[in-house]
Design a protein around this nucleic acid. Structure first.
Lengths: 138, 138
DNA sequence: TCAATAATCAACGTATATGTTGATTATCAA
DNA sequence: TTGATAATCAACATATACGTTGATTATTGA
């Protein structure tokens, strides 16, 4: 799991490509608009201050990440969103987001407990609260 | 919103950096382990087949994305997770994931409706095998 | 004091990202 | 047919990513 496996894990590679695709504001804006409706490359390119060619290549990045599908009919190329990969990324990020938040909540609770015990000990010397396990030292 | 604003939108820049940081399997593995416990750079580097220097720079990427905090005491540098930015990314990705899924559900429902109407009409007439319907033409 | 340790810095090579402009391909339409 | 249009391809420049090795800094502990 920690080993860097290179091309041996297609799921990891997909996450690589999806997160990389999402790391650019132009590409996020493209996805944004494709969430509304399918659009042509030239329509997608219109709002940007960069060349059509540059936008075309941004779209290729999205296609390689599986986030966008292109269907060419004649000389036009209609781009539409594919929801699967973004949900794979959502699954990943939600898992860690929730897990980590839970870890931090636990830590916060433990610290609060310690704090409580300290102030409690100051007030009553004998009626001590349940001793709490400390967090492992660094 | 569609304009490429460069450095004018710190929130967009943060998303850029967070998603970029997540686009590498080594960095995701580092985050994975930091979710368990705070670790030193050398401890983080141990499982990998790359140099300590390379891992150190991966950590810098995570720090620049705000995902990791480093606290140096003496010659050691303890790395710990910061949950905020990953949740910002989770918010972004969940928003779009859910929104897009809803869009697709609506589309799917509409197509099913059309399909149902067609097959119902077909059954009453000839019991023909339902011909597949194309997506609406532009 | 002095050697070992933890981490970073610096320089280098290679690969990829991202923009540009110009050429090319394929299709549409007058 | 022929010119305009949609999109991609190709070549180029520049910047960044990411790995290496070697040097440097700061700290620890015998």
């Amino acid at each position: 799991m920690l080993q860097v496996v290179g091309g041996a894990d297609p799921a990891a590679d997909l996450l690589d490509r999806v997160f990389f695709a999402l790391s650019d504001p132009v590409r996020r804006a493209i996805l944004d608009r494709l969430g509304e409706e399918a659009l042509l490359v030239s329509e997608l390119a219109a709002p940007f201050d960069i060349s059509l060619q540059a936008v075309s290549r941004h779209i290729q990045v999205l296609v390689r990440a599986g986030l966008v599908r292109q269907e060419r009919t004649g000389r036009i190329s209609r781009c539409s969103l594919v929801v699967g990969p973004i949900q794979a990324a959502a699954v990943w990020i939600n898992h860690y987001s929730k897990y980590w938040q839970a870890q931090f909540d636990t830590l916060a609770a433990a610290l609060e407990e310690i704090e409580e015990r300290r102030s409690g000990a100051a007030r009553l010397t004998t009626l001590r609260k349940r001793p709490r396990r400390r967090l492992p030292d660094p």
